[in-house]
Amino acid sequence: MVLAAIMGGSALTASADPWGNQTGDTGAHPDEDPHGYCYSPTVSADLKSGINEAMWDAMDPTQVNVNYDGDCKLSGGGETDVVWRQGNLAEGVSGKAPCEDYDNDRCDQYYLTLDLGQINKGSHDEIDQAQTACHELGHSGGLTHGGSSTDCMINSGSTPPTGIQFRRYGKHHTQHLNDWF
């Protein structure tokens, strides 16, 4: 009631994020729990640190079971859900999360690619790595960009915010992950 009065009398309603699809990196519905991940040989030790922070800190408050697969299973039954890669992306693109194996309206495998050259442009490299990894990981869990998002799913452009909430999932996205998994 107080919020409605502050907002000029309009009521706010929570809306579900739409599912993405296999044609982009907007969060196609993941297959099932657990959400396994691995590192391709291209991922440097420096980048693994940012990814690990995102994997554990961002997913911790959710009900998603995140498992490390020592060997990346790239095809067949039981393939790894998330394959982390490091690579060179287009100018201004720090990460991509395309669904590589879309079947029966679900994504069986995402290739999450991060570009350290694009990410490490400012003075907060570790923060920027964790924020970008959290963002791309969210896509692999089915999350889309939150237009007014105050968490890591914000579409922040070239200068991501440094606040800790931008390296985590907020209540809205945490609830989606909990519902989906």
Results as ranks from 00 to 15, higher is better:
Thr80Asp: 06
Lys121Gly: 12
Cys72Pro: 07
Ala133Asp: 11
Ile119Leu: 10
Asp71Met: 05
Val82Gln: 10
Gly122Thr: 04
Asp101Cys: 02
Cys99Ser: 02
Lys96Leu: 02
Cys72Gly: 10
Lys73Trp: 04
Gly76Leu: 01
Gly95His: 10
Leu89Glu: 09
Thr113Val: 10
Gly92Lys: 02
Glu100Tyr: 08
Leu89Ser: 04
Arg85Asn: 15
Ala90Thr: 09
Leu116Glu: 15
Asp71Trp: 00
Gly77Asp: 15
Glu91Ser: 14
Ala90Gly: 07
Leu114Ser: 08
Asp71Val: 12
Glu79Lys: 14
Asp128Cys: 07
Tyr68Ser: 11
Tyr110Leu: 02
Gly76Lys: 00
Asn65Ala: 13
Cys99His: 01
Asn65Thr: 15
Tyr102Asp: 06
Ser123Asp: 13
Gln109Phe: 00
Pro98Phe: 00
Val66Ala: 07
Cys107Phe: 00
Asp125Glu: 15
Val93His: 03
Ser75Thr: 14
Ala130His: 12
Ala133Arg: 12
Val66Glu: 10
Asp69Leu: 00
Leu116Met: 15
Gly122Leu: 02
Trp84Asp: 06
Asp71Thr: 08
Asp69Phe: 03
Glu91Phe: 08
Lys73Thr: 14
Cys99Trp: 02
Leu112Ile: 13
Ile127Pro: 07
Cys72Trp: 08
Cys72Tyr: 10
Asp69Glu: 08
Ile119Asn: 06
Asp105Met: 00
Ser123Glu: 10
Gly117Leu: 10
Gly122Arg: 02
Thr132Met: 11
Lys73His: 09
Asp115Tyr: 01
Gly122His: 03
Thr113Gln: 05
Cys99Met: 01
Tyr68Pro: 01
